[in-house]
């Protein structure tokens, strides 16, 4: 079954023809032509397809595109507009990547994670569920655990997120 859906991708309105089987990830990459979300595992296990969907970090590989008609999506490509987003700059400053494949997903996830902490949302390692959240290294590691890095750039990623969270 074919359907036409409307998405806002990195600030631009798009009308996209999809089959009901098309995932949001394939719609973005193959139909819209925005290739910053990456297909790592295609099963929700690696985080490389992460975008911001209606303002929150979200996978795109386990999402059927037709179900997200009307969504506003920001990929790593559109995060900073013409400039780099502070999280992207921090990844550069701290060598938060090697091959770069996981990076667009890491960056979107970090933006979402920092925002969640600002809203006071607890994590698995937060001692007091009702207190404000301090983004300690343990907190950052836990909150970023849905993004795997095959190159093992974790120390740089941690440093980048730590710095960006303070900014």
């Amino acid at each position: 079954m074919e359907a036409t859906i409307h998405l806002t991708v990195d600030g631009t309105d798009r009308s996209v023809d999809v089959d009901t089987r098309t995932t949001l990830l394939d719609a973005l990459r193959e139909r819209v032509g925005v290739t910053s979300p990456k297909k790592g595992c295609d099963h929700g296990q690696c985080g490389s397809c992460t975008v911001l969907l209606d303002g929150r970090r979200h996978l795109t590989c386990l999402a059927i595109a037709v179900a997200y008609d009307g969504a506003e999506i920001v990929t790593a490509d559109g995060l900073g507009g013409a400039d780099l987003h502070p999280v992207q700059q921090a990844f550069l400053d701290h060598d938060g990547f090697q091959c770069g494949y996981c990076t667009p997903g890491q960056v979107c996830s970090a933006v979402g994670a920092i925002d969640e902490a600002k809203q006071g949302r607890p994590s698995h390692v937060t001692d007091d569920l009702e207190a404000d959240v301090q983004l300690t290294d343990d907190e950052i590691r836990e909150r970023m655990s849905g993004n795997l890095c095959r190159c093992g750039a974790y120390p740089g990623i941690l440093a980048a997120v730590r710095e960006a969270a303070q900014g």
Partner: peptide, 9 residues
């Protein structure tokens, strides 16, 4: 359970 992204979905 799961990850930050998955819990948002």
């Amino acid at each position: 359970g799961a990850s930050g992204q998955i819990r948002n979905q």
